[in-house]
C-alpha cells in the first residue's frame, strides 16, 4: 500500500463562523429569550393579583418588615405624628381594607414607600425635607393611592419573581433571596400608576383639609432647586418629572374646583 502524504484539511473540524458573530448571535438571542420570560413573569404576577384578596395579603404581611429596614425608636414623636396623620387621611378612604402601619427608615435619601400589608415606610430624609403637615399629607396620601391600586403588591410580586428568575439563571442559591428596602425603592412604578396615586392622594388631602394648599409645594421646591435638595435623585428617578406632576395636580384642583389656598398646619415636632 502506498502512503500518500497529505496535510490536514482546514475547515473540517473548525467552523468558520467568526467568534464575534457567534458571540453577537448568542447575546442577542439570549437577551430576547430573557426579556420574553421576564415579561411573561410580570404578566403572571398581574394574573396572580386577581387571586390574592386584600384580606389574605393583610394576614400574610401583618407583622412583616423588610429585612434591611433600620427603624427609629418607637417613642419617636415624628413616628407618632406621621402615624396619626396617616390614620386621619385613611379615615377619608371609606372602605380601606388595611390597618396602616408607619415606620421611619433612617436613610437620608428622601423617599416614601407603600409595602404589603399596609406598611408605609418614610425616610428620615423625607421628614427633614417637608416644611408643613400639608406637604407630608400629600406624600402619604400618594402612598395610600398606591395601596388602593395595589401597586405595592404588584411591585413586590415583580421584585420577587424577577430576582428569583435572575438568581436561577445566574446559578445563585435561591433559598436565601430576601426582600430588601433598597430593591423595593428601585422598583419602578409606571407614570400611569404614579399619576393615579397622585390623584387619589390629592383627593384625600382636599377632603381632610378642605383645600389643597402646599400639597405640591415639595415638588415645586425640588423642581426649582433642580435636585440639589438632598439626594432626591433616587426618588425622582422612579417618579415622573416634578414639573409635570405639579402641572397635573394643579389641573386636577382646577377641574374639581378645590381651593388652592387655605390655612397651613405646621409640623408637630
Amino acid at each position: 500500500m502506498k502512503f500518500i502524504p497529505r496535510q490536514p484539511r482546514e475547515g473540517i473540524n473548525v467552523s468558520d463562523t467568526h467568534p464575534l458573530v457567534e458571540a453577537g448571535t448568542l447575546v442577542a438571542g439570549l437577551t430576547v429569550i430573557f426579556v420574553a420570560i421576564a415579561l411573561l413573569l410580570i404578566f403572571l404576577v398581574e394574573i396572580a393579583l386577581y387571586f390574592i384578596p386584600v384580606e389574605k395579603e393583610v394576614a400574610l404581611f401583618e407583622d412583616w418588615l423588610p429585612e434591611d429596614l433600620v427603624t427609629v425608636s418607637p417613642a419617636d414623636e415624628r413616628l407618632h405624628q406621621t402615624q396619626l396623620l396617616v390614620d386621619r387621611l385613611a379615615f377619608h378612604w371609606a372602605d380601606a381594607p388595611y390597618t396602616f402601619r408607619v415606620e421611619i427608615d433612617d436613610s437620608s435619601v428622601a423617599n416614601a414607600m407603600a409595602l404589603p400589608g399596609g406598611l408605609i415606610v418614610v425616610t428620615e430624609g423625607l421628614l427633614d425635607l417637608v416644611e408643613s403637615e400639608n406637604e407630608l399629607a400629600f406624600v402619604l396620601g400618594h402612598e395610600l393611592g398606591h395601596f388602593r391600586n395595589r401597586d405595592h403588591l404588584r411591585a413586590l410580586g415583580r421584585g420577587i419573581v424577577l430576582s428569583l428568575f435572575f438568581a436561577t439563571t445566574m446559578g445563585k442559591d435561591v433559598s436565601n433571596i430576601s426582600v430588601n428596602v433598597t430593591d423595593l425603592a428601585l422598583r419602578g412604578f409606571s407614570r400611569q400608576q404614579e399619576s393615579s396615586a397622585d390623584e387619589f392622594g390629592l383627593a384625600l388631602v382636599y377632603t381632610h383639609y378642605g383645600h389643597v394648599d402646599q400639597a405640591w409645594r415639595l415638588f415645586e421646591r425640588w423642581d426649582e432647586t433642580d435636585g440639589t435638595v438632598l439626594n432626591v435623585v433616587s426618588y425622582t428617578s422612579t417618579h415622573p418629572d416634578a414639573g409635570d406632576r405639579v402641572d397635573k395636580l394643579k389641573d386636577q384642583a382646577l377641574r374639581e374646583g378645590w381651593p388652592v389656598e387655605g390655612s397651613i398646619t405646621g409640623l408637630k415636632w
Binding site: S15, T17, P19, E22, A23, L26, V27, G29, L30, T169
Partner: peptide, 14 residues
Amino acid sequence: IAGLRAIVGGRIKT
C-alpha cells in the same frame, strides 16, 4: 461565549 452556548446547547464553535 461557551457559557452562553451551554444555556441553549449546540456546537461550541469557539
